[in-house]
């Protein structure tokens, strides 16, 4: 391709100022993008804590949000790379299917809730219920997480560089929790487990993808003791 042609086809980032334009227009524009779109780079200004910014994006575009967002930012993301240069309110990247969501500040409660895939990176802390009922997402939190994180987590990986609140991994299914800090307490049926070479490979890969310099040996692995969700014949009398 000639230099001139390259310049002709080069597409400027689409800038969307939410202080001026309504959020609904942004959602309509993002949902109208087809898989072949050449509007692949978006910058969103002045989110001012609004809810549901950049939700339901189904194409592999890059979206940068400059500021703090409210509830459910990047929810249901399926393929986009969304960066939030600020804090995120409750339910960031909830029900994500694929893609990457990167919160440069802190995340409120229920970050990555019920998400099936993709990678959620939180540079700061996440509050309560991070990764609640996660179903395949990978979450890397560079700070600490609040209570009841990974509650009923089914699959995927939650990596925590800091500490955790009470009841980590309560009623856990088959998600892995890697924590370098100290859990305030483990929830029902969550226990420390030996880290196998394949577990460590997963951790090293996630740390690398999240841009974290940390020694995998500093982490402990927590998982399900599997006593809650398998019926135990000794309990037959209780029914």
């Amino acid at each position: 391709m000639s230099r001139a042609l390259k310049q002709m086809t080069r597409v400027e980032p689409v800038t969307f100022d939410l202080a001026v334009e309504p959020l609904r227009d942004l959602s309509v524009a993002l949902h109208a993008l087809g898989p072949q779109t050449n509007q692949t780079t978006w910058q969103i200004l002045n989110p001012r804590g609004q809810h549901a910014v950049a939700v339901g994006v189904t194409v592999p575009v890059t979206i940068q949000i400059d500021g703090h967002v409210g509830y459910y930012c990047a929810g249901m993301n399926d393929g986009a790379a969304i960066t939030i240069a600020g804090n995120a309110g409750p339910g960031v990247a909830e029900n994500m299917m694929s893609g990457v969501v990167h919160v440069k500040g802190d995340a409120s409660q229920a970050a990555g809730a019920t998400a099936h895939g993709g990678l959620l990176i939180i540079d700061g802390n996440a509050s309560a219920r991070c990764g609640i009922s996660m179903k395949g997402i990978d979450i890397v939190v560079k700070g600490s997480v609040g209570h009841m994180s990974a509650f009923m987590a089914q699959s995927g990986n939650l990596v925590i560089l800091g500490d955790t609140g009470e009841a980590l991994g309560d009623s856990l299914y088959e998600a892995r929790i890697f924590c370098a800090g100290t859990p305030a307490s483990l929830g029902a049926d969550c226990e420390e487990k030996p880290m196998t070479p394949s577990d460590k490979t997963i951790l090293v890969d996630l740390l690398q993808r999240a841009g974290v310099q940390a020694a995998p040996d500093d982490f402990k692995l927590y998982g399900s003791a599997r006593t809650l969700y398998h019926f135990h014949v000794d309990n037959a009398g209780a029914y």
């Binding site: 001012r48 804590g49 309110g89």
Partner: peptide, 16 residues
């Protein structure tokens, strides 16, 4: 919610 705080003076440098 953070929305309620967004127009306070000096909010961009506040400890949130």
């Amino acid at each position: 919610e953070y929305r309620a705080l967004v127009d306070l003076p000096g909010i961009s440098k506040a400890k949130l």
